[in-house]
Design a protein around this nucleic acid. Structure first.
Lengths: 162, 162
DNA sequence: CTCGGTGCAAAGCTTTTGCATCCGC
DNA sequence: GCGGATGCAAAAGCTTTGCACCGAG
């Protein structure tokens, strides 16, 4: 395992511990196991994927606990929740990640991240204009992939029928 | 009923008719009734609200038909679908509306629309960069409302506990 | 007359809830 | 030992599906 990942895991564990202590919540092994699993790979995931992943690693937790723990992780900012248009909530780790937004491929659903600092300007302008203190935002672009002469998607490598 | 609304309804009816003919779909009264109901008020709505609304007007349609028709209206661009973070899809009419984005109040969930042309720049830049032809986007800002000295939200008029 | 659309109810899926058991504090 | 957290299963909420009937073309 790369050493950077170990450092990040230590850091998020510490943050989570502080959060739990401040909220007088119990530090159960399940909660730390879920946090660890989430930070073991950089990817978007949904509740069921995470649940199955843990089951495969022989760490038995119930769905209810996964949901419960995700709420806590959301609250302390270690995880971000997305709704990319389907009815399935997607999550991603957020510590050590700079702010980014998402480009969603309309043919395969693949999600690519990108950054554009202009969003922050829009945020602060609109916050002021509408009298809100902006907490967070979500910007999703939906697009058809451009394909090469063989009909291969330049972004996701899928064959796209045109 | 204001005459502008009548004009818009005529226009969307025509668009829908053309769409149905092109797709060789039947022009059923239910479909037109749903379209009419949607364009009768400028507001975000969810499937159930629309369903109940029509029932109250003594126009009986089944939920299945509402879902079915909404799919058609989405496909021909007369309606836009949103996921504002909950598990409840929200829709809004799109004809005769300029592009806009949404500010969602974190205390009451109220949605306010706004425009910022910078988004279009981000769209075209990222489309080029990532090799996508952007079809549409969704930008949602989430924020706490600023309140006055009495704790009244300046935006939604609710009392906000601080 | 035909075949697609509707209505109804049942099924599906994700998420939430209730309750007995368990274990962190 | 107490009270909150877990696990399980059942329930809830939104959406989709199957099937018989109806009506647009």
């Amino acid at each position: 395992m790369d050493s950077n990942l170990v450092l990040i895991k230590e850091e998020v564990n510490k943050i989570f511990t502080q959060f739990l202590e401040k909220k007088a919540q119990r530090k159960t092994p399940e909660r730390y196991a879920i946090l660890d699993e989430i930070y073991s790979k950089k990817a978007h995931f949904d509740v069921d994927t995470l649940f199955i992943q843990m089951k495969n690693r022989n760490y038995q937790v119930s769905r209810a606990t996964v949901y419960n723990t995700l709420d806590l992780l959301l609250e302390c900012g270690l995880v971000i929740k997305h709704q990319f248009g389907q009815n399935l909530a997607q999550f991603e780790q957020s510590y050590g990640y700079k702010q980014h937004d998402h480009m969603i491929c309309t043919t395969c659903g693949k999600v690519t991240e990108f950054c554009d600092p202009r969003i922050v300007q829009t945020e602060s302008m609109m916050g002021e204009l509408l009298n809100f203190e902006i907490v967070h935002h979500s910007l999703n672009l939906f697009g058809n992939p451009k394909v090469d002469e063989n009909g291969i998607c330049l972004n996701c490598d899928n064959v796209v029928s045109t």
